[in-house]
């Protein structure tokens, strides 16, 4: 029971973190058709900038500055780099951002070294939110979840309730028409890209203080975020949320489960044989929790190739 509740909480919060990053990716993809391969690198950049700033000006300054700088970087990429390859098609946009991801990763190694840095939450946030079955649940996890939720509410209000949101949605459907109506579409696109990047940066700044901050964090999270996008469906925010939470929960539960395929064979009385075969069959779920998202993705590809919420592609 304890395991179930704590895992559920951890899973939901990890899922919300995934959504914080994948939401920006989905937003940009839905609007501009650009899959930003460097998006998870923005997440890493956010963590490192927050680390650098917070070591001088304190944690909160880092939390504030990191998304701004990362958002700025995103805008520069959208303004000066993407248009150059746009004419060569989406594959080249993907390749360009792929190259940017490599550069960001190597640049981070250049400045901060190829090892984890000591980016920590402030003492003022280091306390237990509540105790459950003798376990102290860290407040900071709830803080991560809270930031994520607050961000979505803000994003949702912005998109659905304001003039800006209406222009953004119009530009998404009919860019030429929106431009003809006098809206500055290049600026709209740049802002959307910048916002998406800033969201990733914020996620990195918040999560980096809790999870390890190292030069691999971009790729590690990035791969999972890409799985979220494939599982969730074409540029669908709802799909991303669903997929994020699913992957968060599955991964979280998997860590504590010591079943293996052999356990299944036990039910059929074949456990002994299965254990003798070994390999994949005796592998415990807990030891392959990192694999769960990929297996989930393959299953979705088999059953619903377009993704949970996607239209046919």
């Amino acid at each position: 029971m304890e395991f179930a509740i704590i895992s559920a909480l951890n899973g939901v919060i990890y899922g919300l973190l995934l959504f914080m990053v994948s939401a920006g990716l989905t937003l940009i993809f839905g609007m501009m058709g650009v899959l930003n391969f460097a998006h998870a690198s923005f997440y890493m950049l956010g963590a490192y900038i927050a680390y650098a700033v917070s070591s001088i000006f304190g944690f909160w300054a880092g939390l504030l500055v990191a998304p701004l700088i990362v958002g700025g970087v995103g805008m520069l990429v959208e303004r000066y780099l993407l248009p150059r390859v746009h004419a060569h098609g989406h594959a080249h946009e993907l390749l360009l951002t792929f190259g940017l991801a490599l550069i960001i990763e190597e640049a981070v190694k250049l400045f901060f070294g190829d090892f984890p840095v000591n980016y920590q939450m402030p003492e003022s946030l280091r306390f237990a939110a509540f105790s459950l079955f003798d376990t102290n649940y860290p407040f900071y996890r709830l803080f991560i979840g809270g930031i994520a939720v607050a961000m979505f509410i803000a994003l949702w209000l912005l998109l659905s309730r304001t003039r800006t949101g209406i222009i953004v949605r119009a530009a998404e459907r009919l860019p030429a028409m929106a431009e003809a109506l006098g809206h500055n579409i290049p600026v709209v696109f740049m802002s959307v890209f910048g916002t998406g990047a800033a969201l990733a940066g914020l996620a990195g700044a918040v999560a980096g203080a809790f999870y390890p901050t190292n030069p691999n964090m971009g790729l590690e999270l990035g791969v999972i975020v890409f799985v979220v996008v494939v599982v969730g469906g074409l540029g669908s925010l709802k799909g991303s949320l669903l997929a994020s939470l699913m992957i968060g929960l599955f991964s979280s539960y998997a860590v504590g489960i010591d079943w293996s395929l052999a356990t299944l064979f036990d039910l059929a009385g074949l456990g002994g044989w299965a254990r003798a075969v070994g390999g994949l069959i005796t592998m415990e779920v807990s030891s392959i929790s990192g694999t769960i998202p990929f297996v989930l993705m393959l299953l979705v590809l088999l059953i619903r190739p377009a993704g949970l919420m996607g239209e046919r592609n």
Binding site: H90, V223, V230, F294, M297
Partner: peptide
């Protein structure tokens, strides 16, 4: 190959990570 375009790229990446 069940997906095309950028999704194809992401799926191949995920299979290698698997």
């Amino acid at each position: 190959t069940k997906r095309s375009g950028v999704y194809f790229a992401l799926v191949t990446l995920a299979i290698a990570e698997l």
